[in-house]
């Protein structure tokens, strides 16, 4: 492989990466968001919630068919909703406390990344796989790992092409 070709490839990739990084680093003004999550065997609607870091979230949980849970990773929140009930139940799992009845839950999305919300109340066969995703942007791990993947490949190829190391 010629040096010129490598130069071109690296240039193109660098541009791409800059683009990705720029997207990832776009600053966003925090906003209020009100989200209603509906749970039904074996999924949540919305399945993916995208917010920006700092957004203030007001969450309501509804169950459409049977009792479902809602364990949100990274935010120390576990909830439970029963069908036909306007209220639902929440607790902070880290404290081991019992569920409290609430109308809505408020929290600030202050931790960036990808967090799954999973069903925490056995609701049927596929219950262990019932989950949705809360993506708090910028989810820096994703662009960073894409960059690393490209980097691993480019550096490997460069090292292979050159005599000396493996």
């Amino acid at each position: 492989m010629t040096k010129k070709m490598f130069g071109m490839i690296i240039g193109a990739v660098a541009l791409l990466l800059l683009g990705v990084l720029a997207l990832g680093w776009r600053p966003a003004r925090p906003v209020e968001r009100s989200i209603i999550v509906e749970a039904e065997k074996y999924a949540y609607t919305p399945a993916v919630i995208k917010v920006n870091k700092g957004d203030r979230i007001t969450l309501r949980l509804k169950a459409k068919d049977v009792t479902h849970g809602f364990f949100l990773e990274g935010y120390d929140l576990d909830a439970q909703a029963r069908p036909e009930m306007p209220l639902f139940w929440v607790r902070r799992p880290s404290t081991g406390e019992a569920y409290r009845t609430v109308e809505e839950v408020r929290f600030v999305a202050d931790r960036e990344g990808k967090f799954r919300y999973r069903c925490s109340t056995t609701c049927g066969y596929m219950h262990p796989f019932m989950q949705g995703e809360l993506i708090v942007q910028p989810n820096r791990l994703f662009p960073a790992s894409l960059v690393l993947a490209v980097g691993v490949t480019l550096i490997s190829l460069l090292r292979f092409a050159r005599a000396g190391g493996t």
Binding site: A43, Y44, A47
Partner: peptide, 8 residues
Amino acid sequence: LGPWGHIK
């Protein structure tokens, strides 16, 4: 492991 209920 995906969030897509209909595929499940």
